[in-house]
Amino acid sequence: MKNNLEDLHNHLFMQLERLSDESIKGDELKEEISRAKAMSAIASQIVSNGQLAINVKRMARAGYIRDAPKYLEVKE
């Protein structure tokens, strides 16, 4: 996978810059707002999934979990 949290950070700031562009008005602005809401929702899910993976790793280290699903593993 080529995307990481730094990429997410950069995408969110690019979206913020587009929303801050005062030359965007009317329907074009409505489309940007809609796009920003979608990006925000997806970004929140990505961050939540990362937090879940971190929690699984902590629980595994503490001995509460023996085998975590592959998709929740945090690489060392």
Rank of each mutant, 00 (worst) to 15 (best):
K30N: 11
V74L: 13
E17G: 01
A60W: 02
M59S: 13
D67L: 10
E73H: 00
I65F: 01
N10Q: 15
A53M: 13
V56P: 04
E73A: 01
I33R: 09
S48T: 14
I65G: 00
E76N: 06
I33E: 15
R18L: 12
A36D: 06
D21E: 05
M59Q: 10
E22M: 08
I46A: 12
Q45I: 01
E22A: 11
M14F: 07
A53N: 13
G26M: 07
D67E: 14
E32R: 03
M14W: 05
L52S: 03
L52I: 09
L29D: 06
D7L: 00
H9G: 02
V56F: 12
S48E: 15
S44Y: 15
L8F: 03
S44F: 14
A60V: 09
E76A: 07
R35F: 08
N49E: 14
I42R: 14
Y64N: 04
K75T: 12
L29E: 11
K75N: 15
D67A: 08
I46K: 09
I33S: 07
I24T: 10
L29I: 03
N3L: 10
E6S: 04
S44D: 14
N4Y: 05
Q15N: 02
K75S: 13
N3F: 06
E76Y: 03
H11M: 13
Y71S: 05
V74T: 13
I42W: 13
L8T: 02
V74Q: 11
L8S: 07
E32N: 04
Q15V: 01
S40K: 09
E32M: 04
L12G: 02
A41C: 05
N4L: 02
K75R: 14
L16E: 15
M59P: 05
F13V: 04
D7Y: 00
I46S: 11
Q45R: 12
N49C: 06
H9T: 06
K37C: 09
L52D: 11
M14G: 04
P69L: 04
K57Q: 15
M59C: 10
L8D: 09
L19A: 03
Q15G: 02
M59T: 03
A38V: 10
D67T: 14
E6G: 01
N4V: 04
D21S: 02
L52C: 03
A62R: 10
M14P: 01
Q51G: 04
